[in-house]
């Protein structure tokens, strides 16, 4: 398949893939692990994110997937997508559909991804555009909590122990999930458009400000004691907002988040199938359908609260392997081969 991305398409794709499924689940474990220094630790983690991006930008040409490694990556993205779906379904059953059978909700979400992936590649690549008006809306909804923010909660600073720093850096990796897509799609970006330099800095700033904003809002709204009981603090912040036009602002938000998540699932499914087609060009539709049947069936095995939590915790280590360790190995091996 031959695709040609503009710089903006590429960064939008990457931003949605990186934020889609984790932006409401990321804050709680991160702040619980790091305490009041969460925002400082995230700033440092942001620098690490930028370093990874710079490394990828300098070496993306050496990242070539052979058939065996590509199967490993396809497996990883399948598991990642399954974990997203499990989490979304679990959250939806708590917040919106307690009585609807899981396979109905999952089936409907997966059917959207199936439809998009059976369409032309340009459709999936540009699907994230639907979220553009939703992202500022989400930020605006959160800003409504401004009068209730307690700014003294930012202090004291510098109290985190080395263990907290280490744990925080690991938990911050939730926000890094999907960064490996940079290596997959970078070579398809229009050669006439510059990516390194300012465009990359701007992307990094947008990514970091988005997550840092959500961390700071959460930190300033809740005490650390309260945080222990909240799995999705952003949802509670929105639920607490009183506006004149609606009573439950969080209900709107949950559907914005759901749209965001379905788009993310579609993007990861597309990536897995895209990499598959690099080596196996036949039976395009069949592989799309089989992948989506797996997406429908596998989440049904891990729908309990404990299983979902364990699955999500394990994903972070798979991410470290596939987004950091393996790319470094592949790049160095290919560089040496070339040398």
């Amino acid at each position: 398949m031959n695709i040609n991305l503009s710089r903006i398409q590429f960064f939008l794709f990457l931003f949605v893939a990186q934020t889609g499924a984790v932006f409401i689940s990321f804050q709680a474990p991160f702040i619980k692990a790091t305490g009041r220094d969460a925002w400082i630790i995230f700033l440092v983690a942001g620098l690490l994110h930028y370093a990874v991006l710079l490394f990828f930008e300098h070496n993306y040409e050496y990242f070539k997937l052979g058939p065996v490694i590509s199967w490993l990556y396809k497996g990883y993205w399948l598991l990642l997508t399954v974990s997203f779906i499990s989490y979304i379904d679990y959250t939806l059953s708590v917040w919106a559909f307690p009585k609807t059978p899981d396979f109905v909700v999952i089936g409907l979400m997966v059917s959207i991804s199936l439809y998009a992936n059976l369409s032309r590649a340009e459709t999936v690549i540009n699907l994230s555009v639907i979220l553009i008006p939703m992202i500022p809306l989400f930020l605006l909804f959160l800003l409504l909590a401004w009068p209730e923010l307690e700014w003294t909660y930012l202090f004291p600073v510098g109290k985190a122990t080395p263990l907290q720093w280490a744990d925080g850096m690991i938990k911050a990796q939730f926000a890094f999930i999907g960064i490996e897509l940079y290596l997959i799609y970078r070579r398809y970006v229009d050669k006439n458009q510059q990516v390194k330099g300012w465009p990359l800095v701007i992307y990094q700033l947008i990514w970091m400000l988005f997550f840092l904003f959500s961390v700071i809002i959460t930190l300033l709204y809740f005490t650390l004691e309260e945080m222990k009981f909240l799995p999705e603090p952003l949802m509670y912040i929105l639920k607490s907002q009183h506006v004149t036009f609606v009573e439950r602002l969080d209900l709107f938000f949950i559907y914005i988040w759901m749209t965001w998540s379905i788009v993310t699932i579609t993007l990861f499914s597309f990536t897995a199938l895209f990499v598959h087609r690099l080596h196996y060009k036949e039976h395009k539709k069949r592989s799309v359908v089989i992948f989506h049947i797996l997406l429908l069936l596998l989440p049904l095995l891990s729908l309990s609260k404990t299983a979902t939590e364990k699955f999500n915790a394990a994903i972070i280590y798979a991410h470290l392997l596939f987004a950091i360790v393996l790319p470094i190995i592949i790049i160095f091996v290919n560089r040496r081969k070339k040398a």
Binding site: F97, L108, M109, I112, T259, I262
Partner: peptide, 8 residues
């Protein structure tokens, strides 16, 4: 949820 799916 139906509206979201329909919109997509």
């Amino acid at each position: 949820f139906g509206i979201v799916l329909g919109s997509l």
